[in-house]
Design a protein around this nucleic acid. Structure first.
Lengths: 185, 185
DNA sequence: TTGATTTTTTATCATTTGTTAATTTTTTTC
DNA sequence: GAAAAAAATTAACAAATGATAAAAAATCAA
């Protein structure tokens, strides 16, 4: 995990030690709710092993907004960055080990360690860029095209139930099933 | 504009002066290309008056990815944050006055002025949150629902040609026309 | 202003996706 | 390992959106 951070931005030794102080590790079992719907996001998670998703309910339907796999950061950004509660939750898709960072403490450290603010700025900029790519996918790609792109990420296709993938793609499970069968496999 | 910055985060006097040094203003006429498709984004714009859009071509079709109006920041983030060229461009929708910030210089100032890094971190975090909201709109809202949400932003509906709005919503212009007429107006 | 160009609307038909319900397959639990 | 529960598929029909073409309306430029 330190390697992951370093690959983005190497912080000084003091900053590294300070960050280490507020990091802990936690294990979640498959399907466990990591953060409840309706709560505030005051935690930055990084998936050490396993997988997790951000989800919410729309008219009774469970919708997956985001997946995170090994070495990926997962936060409910619309809450983390605004301080407001969010209608989204985080759930373990698999037995999952998380690196857990208290965001309140982290943001305090930003004042003291410019380095840390930069590291996490860069981390979240990446997330932002990924989100923009997702917008492109929704704008004028068919569900079939969107699915075909996902098929290339083995992590996702292997680990994640199709019902989660369907809502992630913005279609029903039935629709996804139809698309898959039309790909003669 | 200083007021806009201050509303997000008040930087110290030195930082403010340093930022002022790298800011200039520029006027674009309606439809003028502000940044060419295929170029790198090395500029942060803020709309002082007028409006602009980010657009690209998909299979020959002009697609609007983003709108920006008064006091909004507009950047091609997937390039600004990665250094890579982007297939997207920026165009003035109206006669537009832009506040123009050289991002290379800005990022250099980050090293010297922690304050400035924070200010722009907060600015782009907001953009990130907006982008997430847009994902929600694409996931399981119908084109009609997405349009109805837009109708509430008078800026957009008044200033922007419907063809731009259509692609922004991820539908064809014909479809948008149909939706509008079904709203008996 | 007027003619040309661009934008928007309308109509028709094709395709994609949604909805509902039933069935099959897979996974979980005891 | 068998029963129960959950997930995935299939089918049939409905609704939304796309594609194309033509007409109407609005905007632009000389």
């Amino acid at each position: 995990m330190q390697r992951f951070f370093d690959s983005i931005y190497r912080v000084g030794n003091e900053a590294r030690a300070a960050l280490q102080e507020i990091i802990r590790e936690r294990t979640y079992s498959k399907n466990e709710i990591i953060q409840e719907i309706g709560s505030r996001c005051r935690t930055v998670y990084m998936v050490k092993s396993g997988a997790a998703r951000i989800f919410y309910y729309k008219e009774g339907n469970d919708i997956t907004e985001h997946f995170a796999f090994e070495n990926e950061v997962i936060v409910r950004a619309e809450s983390l960055f605004t301080g407001k509660p969010t209608a989204k939750g985080i759930q373990a898709i698999d037995d999952t080990v998380m690196v857990v960072i208290d965001s309140v403490k982290l943001f305090q450290l930003y004042d003291e360690y410019h380095d840390l603010e930069r590291l996490f700025r860069l981390i979240f900029e990446r997330e932002y860029v990924n989100t923009l790519k997702r917008i492109e996918n929704f704008q004028f790609k068919s569900a079939r095209e969107r699915y075909l792109e996902l098929v290339d990420s083995p992590n996702l296709i292997q680990k994640v139930p199709l019902k989660y993938i369907a809502s992630y793609l913005g279609i029903t499970q039935v629709s996804l099933s139809r698309i898959r069968s039309s790909l003669q496999d």
